[in-house]
């Protein structure tokens, strides 16, 4: 059974000029121990579809789906209370801007212990012990001391490690990483990706990597979903996608990589790709 099953997901936002469809009939499945990458430009609905699965969209969004299930349990039908027991515990998420997604008013220790208190109900000593363990697991040096620090006292890479520690605090079955390395340097990016892959393999987690960096996809994913303007253009395993892309959009995306430049000019997506409707 798949861990997360999404069938025909539609997300609409009410705007002044009528409803805007950010996600238009996307389906995907993630299995246990699998790394799925979702690729697309900004506005392709890749973040919105995952936020919909997490239930983190604002009330202006209308989420409908034929099926939206985690571990066989329907997420749309359950009460908000029940859903909150799953979110943050069995499914957790890492966001793009590590410095912005931590609360600047509290120490990182408080923020990680909060998760442990709410979801696992550990006592004070247990929380602290587990927090130190987690900081060690994500490679933060001197964890006991670091727990008392505020986010502004840490670098971007360290903050992202804290975010990962919070996300894996309750041993989630599914981890959603929304552009986890976009704001980081390449050397730090490598460290964070290695860490995510290590944790994923150790805990046999399902991992969804949302990214627009084809290099990150090539280095991490088992399977790839390509999204464009809210629709799924292609789904393939990673080797097939790079070797033999089916959709014209994927081909255009790969050709626009500076790595693959052959002449003086880079081919742009608008030159190579004419929107001719998505594959379902």
């Amino acid at each position: 059974m798949a861990l997360l099953e999404i069938e025909n997901l539609v997300v609409e936002f009410q705007t002044a000029s009528g409803p805007f469809r950010a996600v238009n009939g996307v389906s995907m499945k993630v299995h246990e121990g699998e790394v799925l990458a979702i690729v697309g430009e900004s506005g392709s609905g890749k973040s919105v579809s995952m936020l919909a699965a997490m239930g983190l969209l604002p009330w202006t969004a209308k989420v409908t789906a034929d099926k939206l299930a985690f571990n066989g349990r329907d997420l749309l039908g359950m009460s908000a209370n029940e859903r909150r027991k799953i979110i943050g515990k069995d499914i957790s998420m890492i966001f793009q801007e590590p410095v912005a997604s931590l609360n600047p008013c509290f120490t990182v220790g408080f923020q990680i212990e909060e998760v442990l208190r709410i979801h696992l109900g550990l006592d004070k000593a247990g929380r602290r012990k587990r927090a130190i363990e987690l900081f060690e697991a994500v490679g933060i040096p001197d964890p006991a001391e670091r727990l008392g620090h505020y986010p502004h006292q840490m670098s971007g890479g360290q903050c992202q490690r804290v975010m990962i520690a919070i996300a894996i605090a309750c041993n989630p079955k599914l981890l959603i990483a929304d552009e986890p390395t976009t704001a980081l340097d390449v050397t730090i990016q490598k460290q964070i990706l290695d860490l995510l892959m290590k944790l994923q393999a150790e805990h046999n987690m399902g991992l969804i990597m949302i990214t627009h960096n084809m290099g990150v996809v090539a280095e991490t994913a088992d399977r790839v979903v390509v999204q464009y303007k809210g629709r799924k253009m292609e789904e393939a395993d990673v080797l097939t996608l790079f070797e033999n892309p089916k959709s014209n959009y994927t081909r255009a995306l790969l050709a626009a990589l500076p790595d693959n430049a052959t002449g003086d000019r880079l081919p742009t997506i608008s030159e190579l790709f004419v929107d001719e409707g998505a594959v379902q």
Partner: peptide
């Protein structure tokens, strides 16, 4: 050299190498 090694590669050969390594593990 570290910088070059850290840059993600998007070519078919490196994907094959990574998948083979993963299978082995």
């Amino acid at each position: 050299k570290t910088l070059f090694a850290a840059t993600p590669r998007a070519d078919v050969e490196s994907i094959k190498a990574r998948l083979a390594k993963k299978k082995q593990a």
